[in-house]
Write a protein that binds this DNA or RNA. Sequence first.
RNA 1: GCGGACGUGGUGAAAUUGGUAGACACGCCAGACUUAGGAUCUGGUGCCUCACGGUGUGAAGGUUCAAGUCCUUUCGUCCGCACCA
Length: 815
Amino acid sequence: MNYTPAEIEAKWQHTWSETKAYEPSNDFSRPKKYVLSMFPYPSGRIHMGHVRNYTIGDAFARYYRQQGFNVLHPIGWDSFGMPAENAAIKHGVHPKKWTYENIATMRGELAGLGLSFSEEREFATSNPEYTAFEQGFIIDMFNKGLLYRKQGFLNWCPHDLTVLANEQVVDGGCWRCGTPIVQKEMYQYYLKISDYAEELLESLKSLEGKWPKQVLTMQENWIGKSYGLEFAFKLDEESEAKVGAVYQSFDVFTTRPDTIYGVSYAALAPEHEIVRHMLSFGLLDEATAHAIKAMQRVSARERATSPKEGVALGISVIHPLTGAKVPVWVANFVLTDYGSGAVMAVPAHDDRDYEFATKYSLPIKAVIFPSEGELPVGSAYTEAGILHESAQFSGMDNTAAKAAIMDHFEEHKLGKKVINFRLKDWGISRQRYWGAPIPLIHCDTCGIVPEDKANLPVALPEDVVINGEGNPLEHHPTWKHCTCPKCGKPAIRETDTMDTFIQSSWYFLRYTVPNTYPEAFDPKALDYWMGVDHYIGGIEHAILHLLYARFFTKMLRDLGYVKSDEPFEHLLTQGMVLKDGAKMSKSKGNTVDPGELVAKYGADTARLFILFAAPPTQELEWNDSAVEGAFRFLKRFADRSQNVNAADRLPNIDHTALSKEEKTARKKVYEALKRSQEVYTERHTFNTMIAGVMEAMNALGEQNNRDVWSEGYWILLSIMEPIVPHLCWELSTNLFNRKNLGPQNVCEEVFEVDALSLGVSVNGKNRATIEVGVSESQDTIIESAKTAVEKWLEGKEIVKAIVIPGKLVNLVIKG
RNA sequence: GCGGACGUGGUGAAAUUGGUAGACACGCCAGACUUAGGAUCUGGUGCCUCACGGUGUGAAGGUUCAAGUCCUUUCGUCCGCACCA
């Protein structure tokens, strides 16, 4: 048969679409699989990363369909975001037009790959209905106190003129444009992800073995739970008088209460409220004030790499246990937004405190000593040890002391055990046009009031000026003027839009109904389809998207929309596609255009290559001649189908009557089938599965029994259909009326052999191979092994002979 | 600094529980058919050696009849977090 991919692929893609072959069924009594590849941002054209992502997902979806599952395999568009606005600034094209044209282009490109997506469930997150549902959730969250507004120091990108979440700051720069972030104090809205920190951490355990370990660890570290003691340092009388009696104390947090008798100073962040108070009331001398202001101007990121510096505030606090006076300093290494922005400093047992104390000649008092050996000289001792000079706790092991000291604080109401998280609330305000408006209204009388749900969506105006200066919604002449839903007086709409990560935090829930469904969800459909059985996407989403999506699922559960605790059952993180050892990118000029590849070889070749070149989780190095090789295999596969007898069923084969080559061919075919079953369900190493099919093809070529060929194609077409669907549908239709595209049984008789090949090794080194009958006795096997390796045994004594049935014989010799 | 992943031919990679290392493919070499081939088919291909044979999974030790696989130490690469008290 002549292999003409362009013709075959167009034909089948048309048929699949016409017959709605890939729409999920509404029969919820059937077993289901929800297979989802992360949806794309409509940037313009698809790239190889997309091809890999969607090919992997499609393989799962098609496999489960063959196995009789009701499969949901949707696609959509993460279509709000900055590039649309940037295009508007640069080329004057409206973000909406730009976005929807890109979607049309990319939809066509994906269709050309023969991906088995549901068409009735496709949507773009910038569609007004989607915005309406989302704004409904946001209002619920606001009413429940999960969304709040506060002023704070925020990551501000001076290039994109917007706020970024901590998760979106990469190496101190904007995750999109790389511009260094500056700190800016302003109002914005936050989602209380910190309320869910404990659960987000705890339920990571339920994902063990189903999500890559690396992702679980990254999320765990990001959430960053730590146990410790929180207590108040009281200002002494003189200091209290100095700050005008406005403050009597400040809180500190420590994970090392065992070192508390070694405290020699306390340190405040430059932004600490006491520091700010003293600055604004002129309670500090000029040099000190100047030094603190200089520290405040340095971004958090820069501080992390700057040398430690600080300045004494001229006030003191009282040590809660010893009553000693402890000087208070301002230090650039104290983080404003972790704990209370203040620490107790124990230079003898903390590296940072040590460095600082050394620089400013502050006392260093060791209170924990190693049980063996000496304290180190010239550095802090941070290991375990025995307490000294620590009142009643002296002599205790430091772990025991930690607990005892915390108990002591609690008993005497001096402080309490607390848990601190690194995870901060999620700031969701963006000063952009092309996003979902935050559905809140500012009323002079009523304060912040949510929009009436009946008025949703709060849609974007289309007539806007987008020139890169400020927020277009803010500058629109009429849009922001409205009436207060509560009191009816004139009011102002919030002009900030939501972080686009909000849209991707729940899109997978919306897919559970067709895109025309009038409500956000159908509870029955949601229960049936969730969670996503296989979620496939890039490792770059290990924290951002995957953490937010988990958070949203839990929030929507608590708001009564969803029953799931976790959205994604199994996560597969695909590796990057590289060329010349580097990630494909336009700026490096090392891209391969999927469109050209499909035009030259067809979608099946592209899909086969991308799954064969490496396991999905590994990086994939592009190789043009290996693509050629994939194409040649498909040509051969098409061509040799002429050895098959067309039929509606598997041929009956008398295995015992077959030649050795025929038997081997059958065995290879069923080995490939066995492997494919493991690969789809457990290992996901499509490369080894394809290798198995190639081996089977090679073995079939060694014989010319048409029944063996027919059986081989029946099975191999079924295995390969998820990988190279067009060719497999073409051949299966012509040869087997497609009766072969379904679950396959392994024919066990082909694995029954009458002779085994055993390796013979001497002292563990492989020396020869022998053929033995299956029922041969151990002694006989050892005898033939000895004969086979005679020359290595000469003059030696055999101490031991080990027979591993079906594998090898090892002779242990001496002398 | 902390955490994670990984190191196997010229290349991408196999080897699921310790059991014949390098399957499958790319590349390369030789041959066949061809006016021609970057098409197709056949054979070969870890390294050293004419060969017998030796040697080989980053390195060094160890456990074992047997180690790519387990343990210890070490080197290197990549990724994430990074003054989190």
